[in-house]
Design a protein around this nucleic acid. Structure first.
Lengths: 199, 199
DNA sequence: ATACTGATTTCAGCAAGTGCAATCACTGAT
DNA sequence: ATCAGTGATTGCACTTGCTGAAATCAGTAT
C-alpha cells in the first residue's frame, strides 16, 4: 500500500474548486481546502505559491502548447494570423471539450477581484511568451509584443462569447470572428479609407 | 492649531513611495509606512483598501479625465481614434510633466509581481470604463470592449517607450506612432490585401 | 453649553504565508 | 537483508496583512 493517497495536487485542486463554487473564494479557508483533500494547510503551500494559484494549474500547459504552435507555423503567414491560428489549435485540444468546466471556473473567477487579478497576470505572462515566440521567428520585440497583445485581445473577445449560454459555436470560429472584428475596428480611420483588393 | 497634521493620505503615499523605492515593496511593512507618516497601521487601512492601493491613487482621476474626453469628442471620428485622442489629451495634462515621477513609480511596480497584478487590474477597469463611454456614444457593447482593449494596447505600447531613458519625444506622439503600428499589425492579412484609397 | 462630526487610535483576532526540523514509507545499492 | 538516501507530508512557531468594534477628542454647528 502506498504511504499516501495518490495525486495530492489533484485532490487539492478539486477540493478548492468545489469549495470556491459552494461558498465563494473569500469565505473558503486554505485549511478547509486541505482538510477536504485529506491533507494539511502546510502541504497546500508546498504545492501552490498562494491560495489563488490552485485555480490556475492548466495555464502553463496552454502556454506551452501555443508557443509550440507558433514555432511550427508557416513562415509566410502574417504574425497576427500566426498567433490566432496557434490559439485556435490550442483551443481545439484544451478548451472545446470542457466547456462546462471552463465556464464554471470562469464564474468563480468573475465573482472575485483577487482571482481576476491573477487571471490578468496569467494573460500578461502569456502575452510575453507569445511575443518571445514571435521574436524567435524574426519579428522585432516591439512589434512582437504589440502583435501578442492583439492576439490575446482576440482570445479574450472570443472566450467571452464562448462562455455565454446562448452561444453554441466552436471557439475556433469565434476566434476567427473576433479577429475579423479587431481588423474592422483597427481599419476604420480618418485620413484614409481602405478597401479589399481582389487578387 | 489643528488636531492632526494635515494631508494624512498624502503623507502615507509619500512615505510608501519612498520606502518602496528604498527597500522594495515586500520588505516594507504597513506599520513602517504609517510610522514614517506619523500615523497608525489602522489609519493606513482606513484610507487604502490594501497595501498595494497606496501606489494607485491617481488612477481614478486619469480614468475620469479620459471618460470626459471621450464623451466630448466629435461624433464623426472612428471609435479607435476617439479613444486615442482621449488618451492623448489626458496624457498631456497628467503625464507629460511628471516623467521622472512616473518612471520611478513604474520601476517600483516592475520590481514586484503583486504590484504588477494590481496595475493590470487598474488597466482592466480603465478598459471597461472606456467601453462604457463608447457604448454611451451608441457603439454596441461588444465592439466597444474590443475598441477599448485596442486603445489600451496602444497606450501600453506608447507608455512603455515613453518611460525608456533613450526616448525624448512627447507621449502624444508616441501614442500616434503606436496607433499606427497597431493598424499595421492588424491590417496585414492573408486572404485580402488592402490599399489606401485616394479621396 | 451642548451635541455632533469625523479622523484617528487601541485592541483583539483571523487568515495568509514562511522557515525549519521531523517523520517515515519507499527505493536503490551493497 | 540491511542501510543510507529520497521526497512528500507534517507540526510548530512566527511575521504580516487586514478587519471589527469601541474609544478618543479637537473643531464645528446649534
Amino acid at each position: 500500500m502506498p504511504r499516501w493517497e495518490p495525486d495530492g495536487v489533484g485532490r487539492l485542486q478539486a477540493a478548492a474548486f468545489e469549495l470556491f463554487a459552494e461558498q465563494g473564494f473569500e469565505r473558503t479557508t486554505v485549511a478547509e481546502i486541505a482538510q477536504r483533500a485529506g491533507l494539511t494547510q502546510r502541504t497546500f503551500f508546498n504545492h501552490f505559491a498562494d491560495k489563488r494559484e490552485v485555480l490556475f494549474g492548466l495555464g502553463s500547459e496552454f502556454q506551452e502548447e501555443i508557443v509550440r504552435e507558433i514555432a511550427a507555423c508557416a513562415d509566410t503567414l502574417p504574425p497576427l494570423d500566426v498567433v490566432v491560428r496557434a490559439l485556435q489549435a490550442a483551443s481545439d485540444t484544451m478548451f472545446e471539450e470542457r466547456r462546462a468546466a471552463v465556464t464554471r471556473r470562469q464564474e468563480i473567477i468573475d465573482a472575485n477581484p483577487e482571482l481576476q487579478e491573477r487571471e490578468l497576470s496569467k494573460q500578461a505572462a502569456l502575452i510575453h511568451a507569445i511575443a518571445a515566440a514571435l521574436h524567435a521567428r524574426g519579428l522585432d520585440p516591439e512589434t512582437a509584443l504589440l502583435t501578442a497583445g492583439a492576439g490575446m485581445l482576440v482570445q479574450q473577445t472570443a472566450v467571452r462569447r464562448w462562455t455565454q449560454p446562448a452561444e453554441s459555436r466552436p471557439l475556433r470560429e469565434l476566434l476567427s470572428d473576433a479577429l475579423h472584428s479587431l481588423r474592422t475596428v483597427a481599419t476604420q480611420t480618418t485620413d484614409q479609407r481602405v478597401v479589399p483588393l481582389e487578387t
